[in-house]
Design a binder for these strands. Structure first.
Lengths: 149, 149
DNA sequence: TTATTTTAAGACTTCAATATCTTAAAGATG
DNA sequence: CATCTTTAAGATATTGAAGTCTTAAAATAA
């Protein structure tokens, strides 16, 4: 199940990368991020641009330029990134894709799906990128396993 | 959040439709299903074909032909349709799309996501299309609301 | 100033899911 | 038989996400 778009996935990985590598008041090179995380440079740039426009990052051009996290990473939650990059209706969608599905005109799966969405929403509300950074997991593609999942 | 592909969504809606309309030992016309559910006829036909190959449906050609549910609808669960149409690795995917993400080499979100997936998996294991039929929800696009969600 | 580096932004390309179109095969009907 | 209807199956087209390429703008440094 691919819950998140690559756009959102790349944003999450990049932000954790930045937390791992950011010195005080230091701008981080986007090219470095894209190289280390194996993400298309131009695609990543555009994703980060939208985070800059939203005030989560600050950017600086030129030879010593780059981007930096400008918002308290404890207040950058997964759900914030999802709302910015996937849209505010992310958790409003019907499992069967039916328009107007809700309490008034529910689809057969409405109740099941609503509960599942609420559970997931809560998890995403309670997970900041600082939390994820402190969990110290892998954010690169490198894996010991031969088979991919 | 679009958890399921249109392929799986159409299959679920078509099966519930069939339960709602099926007489004893009667073949149902695919054209009728596609008309009533506003689904592309040829696309739906192919989806139903794969369910026929898997033994969930039986089909019959010719003037009085159609398709019929051949398996006990109580034993056709959402998870069965998902495995058939989305693949057996549906619940194995990493939230961040990383290959080989697992207990050995987890991504930062692995634990959160694993629990969420297990919860959802259980819901889909416990929901048969007969259950969904009995919940009597809406399976068509018709909605009273003007704004769509 | 001139050249270089980096982010910003737009145009274009690729790819897989989805949708459509056409033909074949099986069965019914007259 | 010939004709019609329906599912089966393949080819082609469309669409949006994802990825690539090119140019502009801002800042640094020679």
């Amino acid at each position: 199940m691919q819950a998140l778009s690559k756009t959102t996935i790349y944003a999450i990985r990049a932000l954790i990368y930045m937390l791992n590598n950011q010195q005080t008041n230091q701008y981080i090179n986007i090219r470095d991020i894209s190289n280390d995380l194996d993400i298309s440079f131009h695609f990543l740039t555009k994703i980060l641009q939208s985070l800059t426009k939203q005030g989560l990052l600050s950017s600086y051009r030129g030879a010593t330029g780059g981007i930096a996290i400008s918002k308290n990473p404890q207040n950058i939650r997964l759900i914030d990134l999802i709302y910015i990059l996937e849209g505010n209706d992310f958790f409003d969608k019907c499992l069967l894709g039916l328009p107007g599905c809700g309490t008034l005109e529910p689809c057969p799966a409405h109740e099941i799906w609503s509960v599942a969405k609420d559970d997931l929403k809560m998890k995403f509300e309670n997970a900041s990128i600082l939390d994820l950074k402190n969990l110290k997991g892998r954010i690169t593609n490198e894996s010991l396993e031969l088979a991919t999942a």
